[in-house]
Amino acid sequence: MRLVTFSTDHGTHLGALVAGQVIDLPGTYAAWQRTHVRSSALFSDSQSFPTSMLHFLQADEATREVVDHVLAFAADPNIRADLADADLAFPVDHVTFLPPIPRPGKIVCLGHNYRRHIAEMGSPLPQYPVLFARFATTLIGHRQPIVLPKVSNQVDYEAELALVIGRTGKDIPKTQAAFDYLAGYTIFNDVSVRDYQRRTVQWMQGKNFDGTGPIGPALVTADEVRDPHALDITLRLNGEVMQQTNTSDFIFDIPTMLSYISEIMTLEPGDIIATGTPSGVGYARSPQVFLKPGDVVQIEIAELGMLENSVIAPQGAGGASGPQRTASFDEVTHG
């Protein structure tokens, strides 16, 4: 599944990407239920059908099987035409993508988790995962603009694979069983305000400016990703490749991340873990490269798609907002 949270003139919706369109999942469920005489035997309480991403992540297996039925129903082009007529299916450029999980309980980020990034920053390999926190007010969705802060001109990009927790977990084993705690994966841009980040030994202030955490466009469920340790990651700034690597360069693999973090805190459905950025950040370049109004940042991760955001001037500070190109469905869903 490729699940999204999106908004239209009619409000905020839980949706899915299906064959070039965004479908409203609760509305499509109601249509499916009307056309399937025996659907009530599978799932009789319409109020229990997920209406948000968090509700979906907290649902039981029976509910998720019903979601599978609804997506199979929506795969029929004739059905999608009817859904479009009912304002339940939309072209991707007719909706506003929001963060897949708009207000996660926790956003735990790793720093220094790629070997080549460690080398470019001149740092020693860490003995333990380097952790810091982000907060929900930093998150923005696919195609929403990154608004530069008024107080800094050292705003940098960071392409990252993000994990989405699907089950409550404490003391998760450092084995393949750790993957059972994942709902899926998404794309994250850990936009960093470098001068604030470097003010103290704690990075929090440079990582939590409002609207500096683009994420999405979709939560891609774990069954659709063959090997999260073998995903190509590419970041382009105005079309130029700035970061390009593979998650095989991780220092700490996913079971190690989940095990270590869950020693400290209980992980819950909807929590996000950002797994660190590869080499090529603007701060480490010579000359340094920082984001400016008019820039467009695209992050592509194999099997997950593409996250794109334009960069605009500080609010109230004037300046051009730059191009905000509409991504194609192939970019959103497949890269």
Rank of each mutant, 00 (worst) to 15 (best):
residue 16 A to H: 07
residue 321 S to G: 15
residue 321 S to I: 09
residue 308 E to K: 13
residue 6 F to N: 05
residue 66 V to L: 04
residue 77 P to Q: 11
residue 199 R to Y: 08
residue 285 R to I: 03
residue 194 R to K: 15
residue 284 A to I: 02
residue 216 G to P: 08
residue 15 G to F: 04
residue 68 D to C: 03
residue 113 N to S: 01
residue 305 G to V: 07
residue 177 A to W: 12
residue 142 H to P: 09
residue 123 S to C: 06
residue 173 P to Q: 02
residue 72 A to Y: 02
residue 116 R to T: 15
residue 160 E to I: 08
residue 92 V to R: 04
residue 77 P to R: 12
residue 288 Q to H: 06
residue 40 S to G: 07
residue 27 G to Y: 10
residue 134 R to P: 08
residue 322 G to R: 07
residue 289 V to C: 14
residue 233 I to G: 04
residue 37 V to F: 14
residue 285 R to G: 04
residue 163 L to E: 05
residue 218 A to K: 01
residue 154 Q to D: 04
residue 206 G to F: 03
residue 278 P to W: 01
residue 179 F to M: 15
residue 249 D to G: 08
residue 275 T to K: 00
residue 199 R to T: 12
residue 152 S to K: 09
residue 183 A to R: 10
residue 241 V to F: 01
residue 178 A to Q: 14
residue 289 V to K: 14
residue 322 G to T: 06
residue 89 A to E: 12
residue 32 W to K: 00
residue 16 A to W: 07
residue 96 T to V: 15
residue 210 D to T: 14
residue 266 T to E: 10
residue 292 K to I: 02
residue 238 N to G: 05
residue 170 K to E: 04
residue 83 L to F: 01
residue 81 A to C: 01
residue 3 L to S: 06
residue 3 L to A: 09
residue 112 H to Q: 12
residue 76 D to K: 03
residue 293 P to W: 12
residue 24 D to Y: 06
residue 262 S to T: 08
residue 214 P to E: 04
residue 100 P to H: 06
residue 151 V to I: 14
residue 60 D to E: 11
residue 99 P to A: 00
residue 161 L to Y: 07
residue 63 T to W: 01
residue 247 T to N: 09
residue 297 V to Y: 00
residue 332 V to E: 05
residue 165 I to E: 03
residue 233 I to Y: 04
residue 4 V to F: 04
residue 317 A to K: 12
residue 161 L to H: 10
residue 238 N to E: 02
residue 131 L to K: 09
residue 3 L to N: 06
residue 140 I to Q: 12
residue 316 G to C: 03
residue 18 V to E: 10
residue 22 V to W: 07
residue 291 L to F: 06
residue 291 L to Q: 06
residue 159 A to Q: 01
residue 123 S to P: 00
residue 283 Y to M: 13
residue 169 G to W: 01
residue 161 L to I: 11
residue 296 V to Y: 05
residue 252 F to V: 09
residue 34 R to A: 15
residue 292 K to M: 01
residue 85 D to K: 14
residue 329 F to H: 10
residue 323 P to M: 14
residue 280 G to M: 06
residue 77 P to K: 09
residue 29 Y to I: 10
residue 272 I to E: 06
residue 180 D to C: 02
residue 209 F to R: 02
residue 105 G to I: 06
residue 177 A to P: 03
residue 50 P to N: 01
residue 321 S to N: 11
residue 97 F to L: 12
residue 194 R to M: 13
residue 194 R to E: 13
residue 294 G to Y: 09
residue 147 V to R: 12
residue 11 G to Q: 13
residue 296 V to F: 02
residue 328 S to P: 03
residue 306 M to E: 15
residue 89 A to T: 11
residue 5 T to P: 10
residue 84 A to S: 05
residue 62 A to Y: 00
residue 63 T to H: 01
residue 182 L to W: 13
residue 98 L to Y: 08
residue 21 Q to C: 08
residue 62 A to E: 03
residue 270 G to D: 05
residue 282 G to V: 08
residue 23 I to W: 04
residue 227 D to V: 09
residue 89 A to H: 12
residue 210 D to M: 11
residue 37 V to H: 11
residue 202 Q to C: 02
residue 263 E to F: 01
residue 198 R to W: 14
residue 91 P to H: 12
residue 132 F to M: 05
residue 94 H to L: 01
residue 72 A to D: 14
residue 41 A to M: 13
residue 192 S to L: 08
residue 232 D to S: 15
residue 233 I to Q: 07
residue 240 E to A: 15
residue 42 L to N: 07
residue 76 D to H: 11
residue 25 L to N: 09
residue 211 G to S: 00
residue 146 I to V: 15
residue 49 F to W: 11
residue 50 P to K: 02
residue 196 Y to P: 00
residue 320 A to H: 13
residue 149 P to D: 11
